[in-house]
Design a protein around this nucleic acid. Structure first.
Lengths: 205, 205
DNA sequence: GTCTATAGGTAGATAGAC
DNA sequence: GTCTATCTACCTATAGAC
């Protein structure tokens, strides 16, 4: 199956170049070189640079958002759901540390209509059920009062931002890659504790 | 003073185009159009696209990091320092909502040597004193045990990430701009409370 | 399916008139 | 200082041989 193999080689090479350079700075020549094939072949398999990019981006977007809905909609008590989410999601990002930065960067300079077509094809991340669950816990007086959007946003921020700002963070702290990833793994427990402490009610007697 | 006025017009136009499109996708023609001057003039004032970009980027970077050190090194009790930081920093970002995304995006695709020259000229963000202060509070048993790096990273994440991921966030929540900014203003208080609750010790009798 | 060669368009930079 | 015109290089995309 030379066709499949070549197509996958191209996609893998394109993923590397696009995620590193972004759409505008990426060069079809570099993708071809990295896939060890000729530039013309890129247009044979994918008609244009734009279409090749979309194939790469949608897969990346899928990877970043895939597990979110699963856990958001799972049937778990809030505290356990938060723990499951942070652990699962951080594992996913650690395996693909470049993806969050790639997705948000490209999203920042594309028309919103781009997002609409994306949401039409793939599932849209849907935090409704989780936010409802938070709202209920607040109303029942089981956690501190907090706006559900803020809680979800806080959790996502702490999980994702350290990867988006990774170059700056590592420069400032003069942290090598191994130490960085060690810290990120530890943060699975740390973020969970941090969030639970923030929303847990003080013990009342 | 036509010279000064023109130079400022160029810088302002360049800022708009670069922050919106990024370096690679930005076009000198568009910058010239937006500044209502000719393309040749761009090269008269700034020798190249790269130099014009650096002028814009350094100023943006400066704006994003300027107030950080001030507050990081201020002489305040920890809780008040956290509150002051979140409020001040969020105000700064709300006034320049596009800057965080611009800075992290461009940093993700530039060699780290770029950061070194940057740190040489401008001050490097320096959280050392704040982290030391956190460490002391932990050791004195005045707050819950937490790794100082994690606490600082959590605060920064919650402040900055919602702006970096703004397009995605607004699409998912179907939130208009006014509501978005209203939420961000409220988050000054919300993030502060969230953090303080997370690190505050349970009342012991 | 894969290659080479090249068309066609565009963008950064320069030259030179005013 | 500001403009017009142009050079040069590069990049996407296509044509066509194998």
């Amino acid at each position: 199956m030379k066709e499949a193999s070549t197509e996958i080689q191209i996609l893998e090479a394109a993923r590397q170049v696009f995620t590193q350079k972004g759409f505008a700075a990426a060069r079809m020549q570099e993708i071809a070189d990295r896939a060890s094939i000729n530039k013309g072949l890129l247009h044979y398999y994918f008609r244009s640079k734009e279409k090749l990019f979309l194939a790469v981006f949608e897969e990346a977007f899928q990877r970043v958002t895939h597990r979110i809905n699963e856990i958001f909609e799972a049937d778990l008590p809030l505290f356990e759901k938060i723990e499951a989410f942070v652990h699962n999601y951080l594992d996913t990002i650690i395996e693909n540390p470049y993806l969050p930065g790639f997705v948000v960067s490209e999203l920042n300079r594309n028309p919103t209509q781009f997002l609409h077509t994306l949401f039409a094809k793939r599932q849209k991340p849907n935090p409704t059920k989780l936010m409802l669950q938070i709202q209920q816990e607040v109303e029942r007086g089981r956690i501190r009062p907090i706006h559900p959007v803020n809680l979800v946003l806080n959790i996502l921020s702490m999980c994702i931002f350290p990867f988006v700002a990774r170059p700056l963070f590592q420069s400032i702290t003069e942290m090598d890659d191994a130490t960085y990833f060690q810290l990120m793994k530890m943060r699975k427990k740390d973020i969970t504790e941090f969030v639970l402490n923030a929303i847990r009610l003080p013990e009342t007697n």
